[in-house]
Write a protein that binds this DNA or RNA. Structure first.
Lengths: 201, 201
DNA sequence: CGGACCATGTAAGCGGTTACATGATTCT
DNA sequence: AGAATCATGTAACCGCTTACATGGTCCG
């Protein structure tokens, strides 16, 4: 049910079409939340049916049209309610750590490749999030600046701070995952005796 | 598709029933992977149909019976193949960080409660994993000791080391999440001016 | 005899993935 | 004219959750 709230979060900035939201997901929430078109369009229809959004047909070119959604009062209430209610933490399901626990079954090279992929994955995320923080700090995030434009000045500090806080936390987590995988690479070498003889010194 | 491989991982130790596996999930893989009975039993049937397992009916009491599964060669091959192939990293979907990014929408107290729940959740996990590491170190993990009993002595170090490595990594991650949430609590206080006046000293 | 535990599922539904399908617009 | 992009979905399937259902065993 978080897709619904992620969509609400984005639509609190300004009315958007399904296509806009799809792009916004990639540009602004990517790596915190992902959703394909095939999920976004039907969900928007459902949200409209539930009264959280109102969709209006907007002409686009001579024959084309698009549907722009804006949040209703009920939608804002639903979003605030979600923000105020505690999250239910679901059980861990972590394939990378599951595999790590049984790494003795893998070929050493496959085990190394696994951990290198882990590093590559989180390094990529890290770079993206560093860029997000830079955008927050330099005022070059289109979505954030629009959001600030519609919010009272008294809230600007909070809005900016919470976004920054989120991304900085994700960067730290990515760095932790990278360090963990790097320790794993060392461990694989140790267990497979790549070092000729441990120096007794 | 990881449930299947988690089940294979556990069944490489010794033959077990669905009920045993359900318990083993709670005791040994809990918080790395969770699966309810309603998922385990049908999956075991499917795995048997796919030739990865063989199930044998074992009498249990005067009229009762249970089905004990053991891994076939094909099952071992499938498990090794999974261990040797790289994981595909799926997109992030992280409700806690999604909410954190929009914390200005929550009441300060709700925001605090949210972060405290985050701390409680990861603190609980941390305690469980610390206990797992202790069991590994003291040789009091039933599953691990059984596993070592069936493995050549030359592999004991690796088996133990990878399990330890996994849990230590998870502990570090939990601690990171706790630290992040604690920074968040400080941030909420700062933004809501709980401190009467910042000491200029 | 009752309560804790052992044992094995079915069924409905949900959120998400993957693949497919269609057509208009804008720019070069 | 063709390519990139804008725009909106449908359909099949999959893994997982939640709720429900049933019956046997073991021990005090």
């Amino acid at each position: 049910m978080s897709l619904r709230h992620a969509l609400l979060a984005l639509l609190t900035v300004e009315p958007m079409t399904g296509y806009d939201l799809s792009k916004a997901f990639q540009a602004s929430v990517s790596h915190v939340w992902h959703a394909p078109d095939s999920q976004i369009y039907p969900e928007l229809r459902r949200m409209e049916a539930d009264g959280l959004l109102v969709g209006t047909e907007v002409p686009w070119g001579p024959r084309g049209k698009k549907r722009e959604y804006h949040v209703t009062e009920a939608g804002l209430d639903a979003f605030r309610a979600w923000m105020n209610e505690p999250l239910s933490y679901t059980r861990e399901r972590d394939p990378a750590h599951l595999k790590a626990a049984y790494l003795e079954w893998a070929e050493p090279d496959a085990a190394r490749a696994q951990l290198r992929a882990h590093i590559a994955n989180f390094d990529e995320q890290r770079v993206e999030w560093l860029e997000k923080v830079r955008e927050i700090d330099t005022g070059t995030s289109a979505m954030l600046e629009k959001r600030l434009g519609h919010a009272p000045a008294s809230e600007h500090a909070s809005i900016r701070a919470y976004k920054r806080y989120t991304y900085v936390g994700l960067i730290a987590r990515a760095e932790h995952e990278i360090e963990w995988a790097e320790r794993g690479l060392v461990l694989i070498d140790e267990l497979n005796g790549t070092d000729a003889a441990p120096p007794a010194d």
